[in-house]
């Protein structure tokens, strides 16, 4: 009788029941994930966390403004060429310089490496931070990609340029002073043998041994026909330097007084 009744339950009812069960689980998980954060967040930290999130949101808006203004200026430059050969040549050179500097979003063949925090249980006497992806990890991967022949690199939404610093603050990683949440996706455009060169490099092998094998830092790869890299949306203004009219190296700087030193 029980069996006959079970058979009479429609398939959609089973689906709905299962979905409601998972829904309940997810709501509970969401509430649980909020709970400890509220408990451990002190009165000082709560406004600081929201300040960081607000500032990051503002930064995203400012970066978009920079990109939009650059695009608008490029259109005006093209309109202002005025048909003169000099202006046209200059505009072509400007576009090439912008591409070379990382100010233009690029696509091309390459490689994506995803670095994720360790899933290995942290031993009681260990430092929890060793099991998280650090700025040094991201920097190592970026450097090894350059050495393996990459011609352009980005970390998550941040293009790596001549001015890019990758730093740690606590357990968080900042690239171009933008806070990035893990996992970190390091994308590179480069030659078809870039993956082989990377995985055979001593520095990268050391990194895998010391971080992935020792602490369980996740390192996943994907070789792709087309990798998209964002444009750098930061300042390119020189405040303390200027471009010489006739460039040339000057190996004899005028030294001022020492500002700091380390003597063993």
């Amino acid at each position: 009788m029980w069996l006959a009744r079970a058979r009479s339950i429609a398939g959609w009812q089973v689906t709905l029941g299962a979905a409601l069960f998972v829904l309940g689980f997810l709501i509970a998980a969401q509430l649980a994930s909020e709970g400890p954060r509220i408990r451990i967040t002190s009165q000082e930290r709560t406004p600081l966390v929201s300040t960081v999130l607000d500032l990051q949101k503002q930064q995203d808006g400012l970066k978009q403004q920079v990109l939009d203004l650059r695009a608008s200026i490029a259109d005006l430059d093209a309109a202002g060429e005025g048909g003169t050969a000099v202006a046209q040549q200059l505009n072509d050179r400007l576009e090439q310089a912008q591409e070379a500097a990382g100010l233009v979003a690029l696509a091309g063949p390459g490689l994506v490496i995803r670095l994720s925090d360790s899933g290995v249980p942290v031993p009681a006497d260990a430092d929890e931070r060793d099991y998280l992806v650090s700025g040094a990890d991201v920097r190592t991967v970026v450097e090894e990609l350059w050495l393996a022949g990459a011609e352009a690199v980005a970390v998550n939404s941040e293009r790596v340029t001549v001015a890019t610093a990758i730093i740690d603050i606590g357990g968080s990683v900042l690239v171009n002073s933008a806070y990035l949440a893990p996992p970190y996706q390091v994308s590179a455009i480069g030659p078809s043998d870039m993956f082989d060169r990377l995985t055979q490099a001593v520095g990268f092998v050391d990194f895998i041994r010391s971080r992935a094998e020792t602490y369980g830092i996740g390192v996943d790869y994907a070789v792709l026909d087309e990798v998209d890299l964002p444009a750098y949306a930061g300042s390119v203004t020189l405040r303390y330097g200027f471009v010489e009219a006739s460039p040339g190296p000057d190996a004899t700087p005028t030294l001022g007084p020492p500002l700091g030193s380390q003597v063993p």
Binding site: T84, L90, V162, V236, T237, F242, V243
Partner: peptide
């Protein structure tokens, strides 16, 4: 024409990126 402005922009970007010498 915007040649002067373009040249100034070009210098700035080349200096920043390392394509031109900077003092």
């Amino acid at each position: 024409t915007s040649a002067l402005q373009i040249r100034s922009d070009l210098n700035r970007i080349q200096g920043w990126s390392g394509a031109a010498a900077v003092t």
